[in-house]
């Protein structure tokens, strides 16, 4: 009887997996890649910037949808290429508004950029019914309807993540001891610009495919939780990536079972998983 019961659960899970597999793959890839970028953000204390840039990116997408004949094809479907370009332009603009200077006014500036972009998004959504319809699911992080092409776009997140992982030690040196890194012969300015570019690309891809909530959540939450008592930078990176992947898996299951948006489920799942990993490592 127990075997039959387990078999029924397994069958149901397999059915769900087949039905939603593009969404789940997308969530797992995002869960593994975005936290790796988020760790470098945490090393630089730029959490507010990471919160603001997806919002500016999203506002740019909303603007692109609101301009008649710009982002919508003849079949009234948004052109993914135009949306990606708009999101990337928004991410770059957000980066420029943030500025390279991390002075005492930087958090205030970033808070203002976040609120401004949010207000702009809401205004444009109200003025453009088509945009409203297209952007609503992304705002809630409703990934379950994701198509294989969306999952393919999410898979592109592996590229910026691979670049950041390859440069991880150099970037950590620049973040921890910027003057010593510069004196040692590292091109710190180029490394920081490269990081900003990779982050912009990842945020643009994430915002178009997963929405600003999931993107910001996976960039910030795993890194923030992994930073608690991390014995080393590499350990923090591993913990953050593990938290992201497990949150994507658990969030996917919770989303189907409780009928909640996948993005919100992933973001919420990060917290208990991150705390558990942190507690296990401490023991």
């Amino acid at each position: 009887m127990i075997a039959a019961w387990l078999q029924a659960i397994l069958d149901a899970q397999l059915l769900l997996w087949r039905e939603f597999s593009p969404a789940w793959w997308a969530a797992i890839v995002a869960g593994a890649t975005l936290p790796a970028l988020g760790v470098q953000v945490a090393f630089r204390g730029q959490a507010l910037t990471t919160l603001a840039i997806p919002q500016v990116s999203f506002a740019a997408m909303a603007l692109a949808l609101a301009i008649p004949g710009f982002a919508l094809t003849d079949a009234h479907e948004p052109s993914m290429l135009v949306m990606l370009a708009a999101a990337f332009a928004g991410a770059l603009l957000g980066g420029l508004l943030a500025g390279q200077r991390q002075d005492q006014h930087a958090p205030l500036r970033m808070g203002a950029v976040f609120v401004g972009a949010w207000a702009l998004t809401e205004t444009v959504r109200a003025l453009s019914p088509v945009g409203e319809m297209r952007l609503e699911p992304l705002l809630h992080g409703e990934l379950l309807g994701a198509s294989p092409s969306t999952a393919g776009l999410v898979a592109l997140l592996v590229l910026p993540c691979a670049v950041i992982l390859a440069l991880q030690r150099r970037l950590s040196f620049c973040a921890a001891f910027p003057d010593a890194a510069l004196a040692a012969g590292l091109n710190t300015r180029r490394l920081e610009r490269g990081l900003a570019l990779m982050l912009g690309a990842a945020i643009a891809l994430g915002t178009v495919t997963l929405g600003p909530l999931v993107t910001a959540a996976l960039l910030l939450l795993p890194a923030a939780l992994a930073a608690r008592n991390a014995p080393s930078a590499i350990s923090m990176l591993r913990r953050a990536m593990l938290t992201g992947v497990l949150a994507a898996l658990l969030g996917s299951i919770a989303s189907v079972l409780a009928d909640i948006p996948l993005g919100a489920a992933i973001a919420l799942a990060c917290v208990p998983i991150g705390l558990c990993i942190s507690a296990l490592q401490r023991r």
């Binding site: 945490a42 090393f43 630089r44 204390g45 030690r169 950590s172 973040a175 921890a176 001891f177 910027p178 003057d179 010593a180 930073a227 991390a230 014995p231 080393s232 930078a233 590499i234 350990s235 923090m236």
Partner: peptide, 13 residues
Amino acid sequence: DTDALVPLSVDEV
């Protein structure tokens, strides 16, 4: 110059 935001081990330094 030391930035405590990066949780480095001595070996990593």
